[in-house]
Design a protein around this nucleic acid. Structure first.
Length: 355
DNA sequence: AAATCGGGGAG
DNA sequence: CTCCCAGATTT
């Protein structure tokens, strides 16, 4: 049965399956457009199971558009801590502030305007429009490209940006105008649970419409070129405590990797003696340095090979750095590598004081 | 078009 | 290990 000649039957099969089998997820229990927006941003390149607790905490802290708009940016970052892609959090708040200031706190209900909001790209625009407002717009993510590449035997390389336009066009031809929300979510649900990279075709509600299944080629799709060369950067990190029990930290730049997050003093691996490294790079003298924890932290495009130390100083903070009490350090937004080092530093302090 | 931007789960 | 996840932004 050719999908393109049986659109109505396809929509019916997909939507009925979705309404019957859909997972019970927090953002499917609300019709609040702001909440749905938050969920869509958190779900960018992030698994459902990872997002759920973040979604709950975030909306408890910022229940409405107005709450998020007026919050200090550092509180937003703190709520995003550990979720990754931290610019999403800052962009979401910027977008929310635009809605408050430019649109009278009403999220725009057309693609042209909603796409102007910070952090709202082609996917998120279509997702919020279709799910929150019932507007028949495409929401093409990785799931949808995988599902549609199989259903229609589309062999274009999905690693190339312009290939996505093909899928967006296809969805606009196929979408159910009466229930675009269930149609779009149905495709994503299918990609997440059945039409996975290793597909469970025998359970598929629309396999009769699937050209790849018909040809037995579902495992060949989608075609994706993409190969990344990852580099490894050796890093040395120093958790430095002063005589008042405060710890030395520095905020990262507002642009680039882990923007605005807080670090212990760190540098690319220097082969000099540890005390010399600290004196040369941070201009301070430390003593009693001891190894803390070594580990690798893998980003999308690079790996940090971490070596960390604890040390003691009686000097003032160098330019750009500040000392913080343990409670203050807890409250600062830190990426996972620093969290790991901080946890280990506290554990070691605890152990020393009990001896 | 390609690179950048996190972190984790699955095979 | 590799892949990839309800992608957006910058270069």
């Amino acid at each position: 049965m050719r999908l393109i000649e049986h659109k109505k039957e396809f929509r019916k099969a997909l939507i009925e399956w979705y309404l019957r089998e859909k997972r019970d997820l927090p953002w499917r229990r609300t019709s609040d457009p702001y909440s749905i927006w938050v969920s869509e941003v958190m779900l960018q390149q992030t698994r459902v199971d990872t997002v759920i607790p973040y979604y709950e905490r975030f909306l408890s802290k910022f229940p409405t558009l107005a709450d998020l708009a007026k919050a200090p940016e550092e509180e937003v970052l703190k709520m995003w801590e550990g979720l990754g892609y931290y610019s999403r959090g800052r962009n979401l708040q910027a977008g929310v502030r635009e809605v408050v200031e430019l649109y009278g706190s009403e999220i725009p209900q057309n693609r042209q305007e909603i796409s102007k909001l910070k952090g709202v790209g082609p996917y998120t625009a279509g997702a919020v429009l279709s799910i929150a407002f019932g507007v028949p717009e495409h929401a093409v993510d990785g799931n949808v490209m995988r599902v549609m590449s199989r259903l229609l035997l589309i062999e274009e390389d999905i690693a190339i940006p312009k290939t996505k336009k093909i899928f967006e066009s296809v969805i606009m031809e196929l979408i159910d105008k009466k229930d675009p929300s269930s149609f779009n979510q149905g495709l994503m649900e299918l990609g997440a649970t059945i039409c996975t990279p290793n597909p469970k075709c025998l359970l598929c509600p629309v396999r009769d419409f699937c050209e790849a299944f018909h040809e037995g080629r579902q495992h060949e799709l989608p075609v994706k070129s993409k190969k990344t060369k990852m580099k490894t950067v050796p890093m040395q990190v120093f958790a430095i405590r002063n005589l008042q029990g405060k710890w030395l930290m520095k905020q990262r730049p507002e642009k680039g990797l882990l923007a605005n997050m807080w670090d212990f003093p760190m540098i690319e691996n220097d082969m000099n003696d540890v005390e010399d490294v600290v004196r040369i790079h941070f201009g301070m003298n430390v003593e009693h340095q001891k190894p803390l924890i070594d580990f690798k932290h893998i980003f999308s495009h690079l790996t940090w090979d971490m070596t960390s130390y604890v040390a003691l100083t009686d000097e003032d903070a160098p330019e750009g750095y500040m000392f913080f009490s343990p409670e203050e350090v807890d409250g600062l937004p830190k990426a996972v590598p620093m969290q790991k080092i901080w946890t280990e530093a506290k554990r070691k302090e605890e152990k020393n004081s009990s001896e």
